[in-house]
Amino acid sequence: MQPRRRPSRHLRGMTLLELSLALAIVALLCLLALPSLGATVSRMRADSLRMQLVSVFNSARSTAITRHEPVAVCPSADGRTCGSDWSRGWLIHRDHGDSGVPPAQDDIFQFRPGYLDAALRATSSQGRQRLRFQRDGRSSGSPLTVDICAAGALRGQVIVNNVGRTRAPRIRDTPECPP
């Protein structure tokens, strides 16, 4: 018959002091990584907005050509009236040429809500509130530039020329955002 084994007096595990020290180290590492994570998320949102604006401008141009009528795009947070910040959303609608009047419900082709991030901002050049496309797809007026800013730094631009073509350069050296 074999002798019975006695349970070991040394239990395997961590003491409360060791656990507290490990949690303190993990918390410190998280605090060090948090600012760079925030900057990365901000940069990714700016890139996403830049590509979405290219898509919506191209969609509005295509709508003008397909329907053979003037179409406008404007920033809109509520889907009914035009605003000034492209990051809050946008509205594609039939253009009657009266820039101060909100579009009628029947004239709205598409509304897309944007971001609610206060650190993200996208404003038009020269105070232009709308981008208009003629029935042949040309953009009326001067070229439009939308500056996309995240956390106070210029992260990208969307530029529409008079022919109606869109380009969207990414800004690498992150200058301060224009006022």
Rank of each mutant, 00 (worst) to 15 (best):
M1G: 13
R4P: 09
R6L: 08
P7K: 06
S8W: 01
R9S: 07
L11F: 11
T15L: 07
L16W: 09
L17M: 09
L19V: 13
V26L: 15
S36C: 01
S36V: 09
G38C: 05
R45S: 02
D47C: 02
S48D: 10
M51T: 12
M51L: 15
V54H: 02
S55A: 14
F57S: 06
F57M: 11
T63G: 04
A64C: 10
I65F: 04
V71N: 01
A77T: 04
A77Y: 02
R80E: 10
G83I: 04
G83M: 04
G89E: 03
R94Y: 12
R94V: 14
G97R: 06
V101I: 13
V101M: 11
Q105V: 12
F109H: 14
A118W: 05
R121Q: 14
R130K: 09
L131R: 06
Q134A: 15
Q134R: 15
G137D: 02
S140A: 12
G141K: 09
G141Y: 08
S142T: 14
L144V: 11
I148N: 03
C149A: 05
C149D: 02
A151V: 04
G152I: 08
L154Y: 03
R155M: 12
Q157V: 11
Q157R: 15
V158R: 00
V160N: 00
N161L: 03
G164F: 01
R165C: 01
P169L: 03
R170N: 02
R172E: 13
E176S: 14
E176H: 07
P179G: 11
P179L: 09
